[in-house]
Amino acid sequence: MATSNSHRAAGRAVTPFRHSGRALRGTGGAAILGTVLLGSAFAGGAAQAAPTAPATAPTLTAQAAAPATPAPIHTLSSAEKLRWGSQGSSVKQLQAALNEEGASLAVDGKFGPRTHSAVKDYQRTNGLQVDGVVGPETRGALNGGGLSIGGTGTSVPTPSTSSSGSVGQSIVDAARTQIGTSYSWSSSSPGVGFDCSGLTQYAYKQAGIDLPRTSGQQVNAGTSISKSAAQPGDLVVWPGHIGVYAGGDKVVDAGRSAGAVTERTIWGSPTFITFR
C-alpha cells in the first residue's frame, strides 16, 4: 500500500487567503479585504493614512479705504479781492463759506464789520496774513487748497514761512516816502496832503493791504497787541491819532504841524494794532 506524502511538493500552489466574512482593520482603522486596503495604502507592509488635503488659506478681505476729506460745500468762484465795503453774490459765497468754518454771519452779501472780523479770525486760525482781505491765499484756503491761481480752482501749497517781516518793512518804507508832505484833513494824496489815517491807509495799500478809511475803523479792524510784541509796520494809536510803527521806538505819522509827515520818537502811552 502506497504511503501518503503529507509534505507539499515543490511548486505547489498556496491556498489563497479566505475571507472570513469580517473585514480586517489595518493601521489607522482602514478596512482591508484580502490584500486590498480600502481607503489607505501599504508601504513596507504597514498601512499609512492618505495625505490630508491642505487647509484652504483664509481669504484676505480688502482693507476699507480711508474716507476722503469732504470738499467744501460753498466755494468762492470769483477771483476778485473781497474787503470791507464789498457787496454782491461773491460776498454771499464768502459768508456761507465762513459759516462752514464756525462763523455765524447773515448771508446778506454785505462785507461789513462782522464779516471783516470773521475773515480775520479765519486767517489767524489758519496761519494766514491777518488783514481782513480775502485775496488769493485766503480764498484758496477757504476753497480747500493752498494759494488759488486766478480763481480757477487750481492751487499750490501755501508757503510755510511767513513774509510778515518784509510786508511790515514795505509799509514803513511807503510811509517814509511821504515824509515832508503837508497835513490835510480827510486827505490821502501822495506828495500833496495827508491826515493821519490817510497816511496809514496809503502806506498799507502800497503793501497790498486795504484798510478802512478812518482811524477808528482801522483800530476796530486790527488786533490790539503789547508794545513788546509790536513789529515795524504795525499801527501806533493815540486818542484821535494814528501812525505807522517804524521800530526802535519811532513812528511815521501825519501830525498837525509844519512838515506834517515826519518820523519821530513815540511819546506818551499809545496802544499798538497789528494786521499780521
Rank of each mutant, 00 (worst) to 15 (best):
G39W: 01
V134P: 13
S170M: 08
T35C: 05
E100D: 14
S257Y: 00
L82M: 10
I32M: 10
A30N: 14
C196K: 07
A207I: 03
Q129G: 07
D195P: 09
R276F: 01
V167P: 06
T69H: 07
A2Q: 13
A43F: 10
I266S: 11
T161K: 15
T61I: 10
T138P: 15
Q178C: 09
S182C: 01
Q178D: 08
L60W: 01
W238N: 12
F42P: 07
G26R: 07
S189P: 02
G198C: 03
H116N: 14
S117I: 00
G11E: 01
A13V: 02
G208S: 03
A71S: 13
S77R: 09
V192F: 00
H74E: 04
K110A: 08
V167Y: 04
I209Y: 07
V192A: 13
P190H: 06
R25M: 09
G240Q: 12
M1I: 05
V192E: 09
G248D: 12
P232M: 06
H19W: 13
G140A: 02
G28P: 09
G222V: 02
T3Q: 14
I273P: 14
A96W: 00
F194I: 10
T69A: 14
A41T: 13
T181Y: 11
T115I: 06
L128A: 10
R114P: 00
G21H: 04
A43K: 11
G44R: 14
A229M: 11
G248Y: 10
E100K: 05
Y122Q: 06
A41C: 00
S163Q: 06
Q169T: 09
Q95M: 05
I171A: 08
A260R: 15
D195Y: 11
T161R: 12
S189Y: 02
L76Y: 11
P51E: 09
G88Y: 04
G145A: 01
G208K: 07
D108M: 06
V172P: 05
P58F: 00
A65N: 05
T35Y: 14
G180Y: 10
D173R: 05
V107W: 14
I171P: 12
D121N: 12
S269A: 13
G165P: 01
A71Y: 01
E263Y: 02
R256N: 03
T158C: 00
T265Y: 03
D253F: 00
R256S: 11
G150L: 13
G88V: 01
S162D: 10
G85C: 00
I73H: 10
A106D: 13
A221M: 11
Q169H: 07
V172L: 13
A50E: 08
S228R: 11
G109S: 05
R22D: 08
E100S: 09
S160Y: 00
T61S: 12
F194E: 12
Q63A: 15
S162T: 09
A46D: 05
A47H: 15
Q201C: 02
W238T: 07
F111I: 08
D131K: 08
H74I: 04
